[in-house]
């Protein structure tokens, strides 16, 4: 049983590996066909090559930085906030201790 079991584990994971070796090629084949229809040989050649993850990450960071640093339009909203103390009984002059009659005397 041990040998059979180990072989079946290998077989199932081998088939999984095989399937996911083929799927990216099938997906990129569709893209290549689109470029083929457009007649763009340069793009067609690129479509088959997988882009390394770190290249994608570098491109993503560059785009993100570029978009975040764009500042060609101002929103025209003033961001200076008025600093004012709102009324509460605690800062009221009416209830201030100075007004205490006994204290005034």
């Amino acid at each position: 049983m041990a040998v059979t079991g180990y072989s079946v584990v290998f077989l199932s994971l081998f088939l999984l590996a095989l399937l996911f070796s083929v799927i990216p090629k099938v997906l990129s084949w569709n893209i290549r066909r689109t470029f083929d229809d457009e007649g763009d040989e340069a793009k067609k050649a690129l479509a088959g090559n997988m882009i390394p993850g770190e290249v994608s990450a570098a491109i993503s960071v560059a785009i993100s930085l570029y978009l975040n640093e764009l500042h060609d339009q101002d929103t025209a909203i003033l961001t200076i906030k008025k600093v004012g103390k709102s009324y509460t009984p605690w800062n009221s002059k009416i209830y201030n201790v100075i007004n205490f009659k006994g204290f005034q005397r």
Partner: peptide, 12 residues
Amino acid sequence: LISNPKLILLGA
């Protein structure tokens, strides 16, 4: 795992 399917075999 998807990016390098042959490594699945190590899991087996």
